[in-house]
Simulated scan of single mutants.
Amino acid sequence: AALKPIYAAANEQQATEALTAFAAGPWGTKYPTIVAAWERAWEHVVPFFIFPPDIRRVIYTTNAIENMNRQLRKIIKNRGQFPNDEAAVKLLWLALRNVLAKPSRSVHTWKAAMNQFAILFGERFTEARD
């Protein structure tokens, strides 16, 4: 919660101020490595602020991606080794088909993000069709 003002800031200047406040606050003094990590990666964080808030929410919501990666790692780990690359690809394809067939909770702000993508990227953005 103490980091939220940094990544939820409206622009780079507000994020810098929030990082400075975090560093001077109780969490920043207790965990200076967190501040150092943010400062080292700041050049990679700054481009994040060009996007509107609706897109940013989708960008930093990675639970669905992490869940899928976890399921794929579990399937590969249980098999151990494969006779060839084609066998591994087939197994991953079947696993993805099963993972994607399960009903899942989508990001509730995805529709707003899609609208922002359409505005920002115009003809490069095409809405997925079912």
Rank of each mutant, 00 (worst) to 15 (best):
Arg57Thr: 02
Arg57Ile: 01
Arg57Trp: 01
Arg57Phe: 00
Arg57Gln: 08
Arg57Glu: 01
Val58Gly: 03
Val58His: 00
Ile59Gln: 00
Ile59Arg: 01
Ile59Ser: 00
Ile59Cys: 00
Ile59His: 02
Ile59Glu: 03
Tyr60Trp: 05
Tyr60Gln: 01
Tyr60His: 01
Thr61Ser: 06
Thr61Phe: 08
Thr61Cys: 00
Thr61Tyr: 09
Thr61Trp: 09
Thr61Ala: 09
Thr61His: 06
Thr62Ser: 05
Thr62Val: 03
Thr62Lys: 04
Asn63Pro: 00
Asn63His: 06
Ala64Tyr: 00
Ala64Pro: 00
Ala64Phe: 00
Ala64Ser: 12
Ile65Phe: 04
Ile65Cys: 06
Ile65Thr: 08
Ile65Val: 12
Ile65Pro: 07
Glu66Thr: 01
Glu66Gln: 01
Asn67Asp: 09
Asn67Phe: 03
Met68Asp: 00
Asn69His: 03
Asn69Thr: 05
Asn69Arg: 04
Asn69Leu: 02
Arg70Thr: 13
Arg70Phe: 12
Arg70Ser: 15
Arg70Asn: 15
Arg70Pro: 07
Gln71His: 02
Gln71Arg: 07
Gln71Ile: 01
Gln71Tyr: 03
Gln71Ala: 01
Gln71Leu: 05
Gln71Met: 01
Gln71Ser: 02
Leu72Asn: 10
Leu72Ser: 02
Leu72His: 08
Leu72Cys: 10
Arg73Ser: 03
Arg73Asp: 04
Arg73Glu: 13
Lys74Arg: 10
Lys74Met: 02
Lys74Leu: 11
Lys74Phe: 07
Ile76Gly: 03
Ile76Asn: 10
Ile76Phe: 11
Ile76Pro: 06
Ile76Trp: 10
Lys77Ala: 08
Lys77Asp: 07
Lys77Gln: 15
Asn78Asp: 14
Asn78Lys: 11
Asn78Ser: 15
Arg79Thr: 11
Arg79Asp: 06
Arg79Ser: 13
Arg79Asn: 13
Gly80Tyr: 07
Gly80Gln: 07
Gly80Ala: 07
Gly80Val: 01
Gly80Phe: 04
Gln81His: 13
Phe82Ile: 14
Phe82Asn: 13
Phe82Ala: 14
Phe82Val: 14
Pro83Glu: 13
Pro83Tyr: 10
Pro83Val: 05
Pro83Trp: 12
Asn84Gln: 07
Asp85Leu: 15
Asp85Met: 13
Asp85Cys: 09
Asp85Tyr: 12
Asp85Trp: 08
Glu86Lys: 12
Glu86Val: 11
Ala87His: 13
Ala87Leu: 04
Ala87Asp: 14
Ala87Glu: 12
Ala87Lys: 12
Ala87Val: 11
Ala88Gln: 13
Ala88Pro: 07
Ala88Cys: 15
Ala88Tyr: 10
Ala88Gly: 15
Ala88Met: 14
Ala88Glu: 11
Val89Arg: 11
Val89Ser: 09
Val89Gly: 04
Val89Cys: 11
Lys90Asp: 08
Lys90Thr: 12
Lys90Ala: 11
Lys90Trp: 06
Leu91Arg: 08
Leu91Val: 07
Leu91Ser: 08
Leu92Trp: 09
Leu92Gln: 10
Leu92Asp: 02
Trp93Arg: 13
Trp93Val: 09
Trp93Asn: 08
Trp93Phe: 14
